[in-house]
Design a protein around this nucleic acid. Sequence first.
DNA 1: CTTGACATACCGACGGTCGGTTTTTATTAT
DNA 2: ATAATAAAAACCGACCGTCGGTATGTCAAG
Lengths: 198, 198
Amino acid sequence: MSNPTSHDNPSFQNILLATEELILEKGCRNTTLKDIIERTGLSKGAIYHYVASKDELFGLVFKSKIEHENEKFNQIVKHTMEGTPDAGPFEMVTQFFHSRQNLKDVGNIIFIYLLSQEDEKVKSILKSVYQYSKATSVQWIEIGQQHGVIPQNIDAEKMATLFMTFSYGLRVTQILSPSEGEQVATSDIFEFLSQTLS
Amino acid sequence: MSNPTSHDNPSFQNILLATEELILEKGCRNTTLKDIIERTGLSKGAIYHYVASKDELFGLVFKSKIEHENEKFNQIVKHTMEGTPDAGPFEMVTQFFHSRQNLKDVGNIIFIYLLSQEDEKVKSILKSVYQYSKATSVQWIEIGQQHGVIPQNIDAEKMATLFMTFSYGLRVTQILSPSEGEQVATSDIFEFLSQTLS
DNA sequence: CTTGACATACCGACGGTCGGTTTTTATTAT
DNA sequence: ATAATAAAAACCGACCGTCGGTATGTCAAG
């Protein structure tokens, strides 16, 4: 089991960084413990001192990425609200999906990988991230409503769920469809949502 | 490499069936070749006589499921069109997502699994299924437009892409969100789409 | 005697475990 | 303040079981 008190340990941070790099280079499935050992210069025992399993390690990399991304997005929303408080809903939606699309790099790769692990522990990580992301969405939708940017009659909870579904759908189509096709879907969703929001 | 001429072989059909059963019982990751060997009564060599890899086997199960599902859906669309030609777009959208939701069983499990395999061969299977499903969607949207059920000014291609994104998003949220939450999303999408379609 | 349908022994790689060693940190005695 | 020491954290690497996959067969049918 991983020790939560040692998560700020430089060696552990090194493991996290190396894992992220390797995933970007070779993908999750092709990133082995041997790879991580070679890159970090540590041993197998050292890695399993900080982490209970390979899946947990991947989960931790994913979590840190998501949290960082959400934090960044919250800053953007705040800034947009203060800078251009009369910015249309279109701007909001654009920001939302741009934020999500940034996850394409490491986050999306690990996300798909973790989703395929039929393990309750792993799934619970994803579920908690889902809940957190949704809650964040609800928050900024309500902020938007307070600023009069988003119509009052919209159910923030439902809208957030809708956004989550969209954003997950985009993650998949990003992988499956050619890049042009994917962009069509994104811009359509922009249009779609801003239409119903206005 | 698998031999296409022997795909109607009873032994091969047995392998396919056993694999499907096992995936339903234990999931993809936990279904090993040993499991398949035990259930079919065949040997490892026999399985690799029909199939090049475990991934290819899973891919073939997936493909057959999808094709069967699409065929069934096309029948439903046809029947709906002939039976109640003045049925609203709501009916169409409902049918579409109901059809997709039926894939939840084996199809969705394998889909997620295959998506996580960072392998070009596997990905090409999924891409071809994506293209086929999308093309099918375009077809019945156009049929709907010919019958005056769906507005003429809608771009069938774009709409199909949108539907695909939705349907993939639902597949993921089905896994991540509690069942009640998931249903909220589905009904919202119904409302959402039928609103813009009418 | 070729070919399709199997069987089986074997392989390397992988994730994970375990007992042990080194290094750091905290505690106490002088 | 410092040396001695106990405790805990960091780290190592040999070993294990299992897995997907391969190589080399056998054997019956045509």
